[in-house]
């Protein structure tokens, strides 16, 4: 027995689904860049967009919920992703989940609606670089050209047979947020690396 006691919380650290993958992402040709944004707070929100709760929720989020299918809205540190006509995914900074969950639940009050912390359900990848669209096109049929998918576009679709939420984050459609189920993250990361290896040269 040593006299010194080390708290388990100092020995343990959270492990993201893609812990240890960054070196492989960094080895990709420099026309793409992939980085995991781990531990983002993610809340699934169900509410009637035409009911009184939607307005109360908008006050908490600082922005109205996007009601256009396949779109998203940025509001300060929050990203509001349209998942369905009465369903959204709220992305918030790491650790912001519990407080936001409580605030949203209070805003909904007795109206029909639900807030669920689903932070552990998915992880997120930032994909950027001039060959981003070319890379995604290898496994995805959605036209991500900015003429069709302008900034803010948020599509739920299949990429390499895996359910992915793609958010277009800039005007030139070369910067994407990819949201993937934790249990599919390693498969998807391996697919990204395999698909990206043959991207060579300049754009």
């Amino acid at each position: 027995m040593t006299a010194e006691h080390v708290s388990p919380s100092k020995l343990l650290r959270p492990l993201s689904p893609l812990d240890g993958w960054q070196a492989a992402f960094d080895a990709l040709p420099n026309v793409v860049a992939v980085t995991e944004i781990a531990f983002m707070a993610q809340l699934n929100l169900r509410v009637d967009p035409s009911g009184p709760a939607a307005g109360a929720v908008a006050k908490v989020l600082g922005s109205a919920l996007p009601t256009q299918p396949c779109s998203s809205t940025r509001s300060g540190e929050y990203q509001l992703l349209w998942l369905g006509p009465d369903e959204w995914l709220i992305l918030a900074p790491e650790g912001a989940g519990p407080e936001l969950e409580t605030a949203l639940r209070e805003a909904i009050g007795g109206e029909p609606g639900a807030v669920t912390d689903v932070s552990a359900q998915r992880t997120t990848l930032a994909l950027s670089g001039c060959a981003s669209r070319e890379l995604l096109a290898k496994g995805c049929s959605i036209d991500l050209h900015p003429k069709v998918s302008p900034m803010g576009t948020c599509v739920q679709t299949l990429v390499a047979q895996t359910g992915i939420i793609i958010v277009a984050r800039d005007e030139t459609a070369s910067d994407f947020l990819l949201v993937v189920r934790a249990s599919f993250a390693q498969y998807f990361a391996a697919w990204l690396i395999d698909a990206g290896v043959e991207l060579t040269g300049a754009c």
């Binding site: 396949c70 006509p85 739920q156 679709t157 299949l158």
Partner: peptide
Amino acid sequence: MQLISCPWCGPREEAEY
């Protein structure tokens, strides 16, 4: 692949349905 139009999302591949 055949495209089917979702009344919300628009045309998508049949495999999504």
